[in-house]
């Protein structure tokens, strides 16, 4: 069953009507003209709705359960994907998945958050909230990529790093800091893609790339709108206001110079046509990797550092 967001209600109603019409006609009555009219209406409604999403609506789209997640994207873009697990110190953390594979024929290392797509897998992947061992695995895989000269592609999609007692005890903060540091030490290209939710430090740890791409309806923020609202407005009900104030959409972040490119999504968002969204992402990654292909290692490292130093400067 498809999930509809609140603001998609009128679209859902129209689509239900078309389905009803089709079922009623059951191939005996010609409803072609009527259905086509309604479908055109749906299309128009989708276009206008999605062209005018508020930051809070975008946050909901970014969290949509039907949105393509790590496994879908890797399934669509990476051949011979070979997962590599564990941090070699404590545990395997499936909130972050990593491995090697081929992208357009080239060997790459892919690392990213996985939120899961049903109750069982969401629990297994801890809703994409990684623990220290997840970040330590990411560091290990980045260093593996560096050793063998393989480009790194990261897929960022997390509500944030996991806030738990054991995670704190094992050094959640240190693991995130070291992961960001590992990104900055790489002498291979690192392309970071914010594909859904870019949740604070848990996102930065994987998103400190030479290029940072963002899907059109993804969000990337220092704090969730709900968290921000409950601190500054003293009620989570003001999340929509907080989302507006935080400037967390792809367009905002491009204007602030934080991201390099916006990856267009199909009409109605990536969850309406995951295959098309994944294809667009593939094209964008390929373009960015091609631009960096000829740079020597030291230049790649310097390019990445200069990029971050330039952000927000007068």
């Amino acid at each position: 069953m498809a999930t509809f967001l609140d603001f998609e209600r009128p679209i859902a109603e129209l689509e239900a009507k078309i389905a009803e019409l089709r079922a009623g006609a059951a191939g005996k009555v010609d409803i072609g003209a009527e259905a086509a009219k309604l479908e055109a209406k749906v299309d128009k409604l989708l276009r206008t709705t999605y062209a005018n999403l508020t930051p809070w609506q975008k946050t909901q789209v970014a969290r949509h359960p039907g949105r393509p997640h790590f496994k879908d994207i890797v399934g669509g873009l990476i051949d011979d994907f070979t997962p590599l697990a564990g941090d070699r110190g404590f545990a395997e953390d499936s909130a972050i998945i990593g491995g090697m594979g081929r992208f357009r024929g080239h060997s790459v290392v892919v690392i990213g958050h996985e939120k899961g797509s049903d109750t069982t897998s969401r629990i297994r992947h801890n809703f994409g909230m990684a623990k220290p061992e997840g970040y330590r695995k990411a560091i290990r895989l980045m260093q593996l990529a560096d050793k063998f000269g393989l480009p790194v592609v990261t897929l960022v999609d997390t509500p944030g790093a996991f806030p738990g007692v054991q995670a704190e005890e094992r050094g959640q903060a240190e693991a995130i800091a070291r992961s960001t540091e590992a990104c900055l030490m790489l002498e291979v290209p690192l392309i970071a893609c914010v594909v859904g939710e870019g949740g604070s430090g848990g996102a930065v740890a994987l998103a400190t790339g030479n290029r940072v791409l963002m899907m059109e309806h993804a969000v990337y923020s220092v704090i969730s709108p709900e968290g921000c609202a409950s601190i500054l407005w003293r009620t989570a009900d003001k999340a929509a206001d907080a989302a507006e104030a935080l400037k967390l959409t792809a367009v905002d972040l491009a204007n602030l110079g934080v991201i390099d490119s916006i990856v267009p999504e199909p009409v109605g968002g990536a969850h309406r046509d995951p295959a098309a969204a994944i294809a667009n992402l593939g094209t964008a990654i390929e373009r960015q990797l091609a631009e960096l292909a000829d740079l020597p290692g030291a230049a790649l490292k310097a390019d990445r550092r200069d990029k971050f130093l330039a952000i927000g400067r007068l």
Partner: peptide, 18 residues
């Protein structure tokens, strides 16, 4: 991080790490 500077405050994490 200072929430009122949004993503730019978050970007101080990689910047200080540089």
């Amino acid at each position: 991080a200072r929430m009122q500077e949004g993503i730019l405050s978050l970007m101080q994490m990689p910047r200080t790490t540089v």
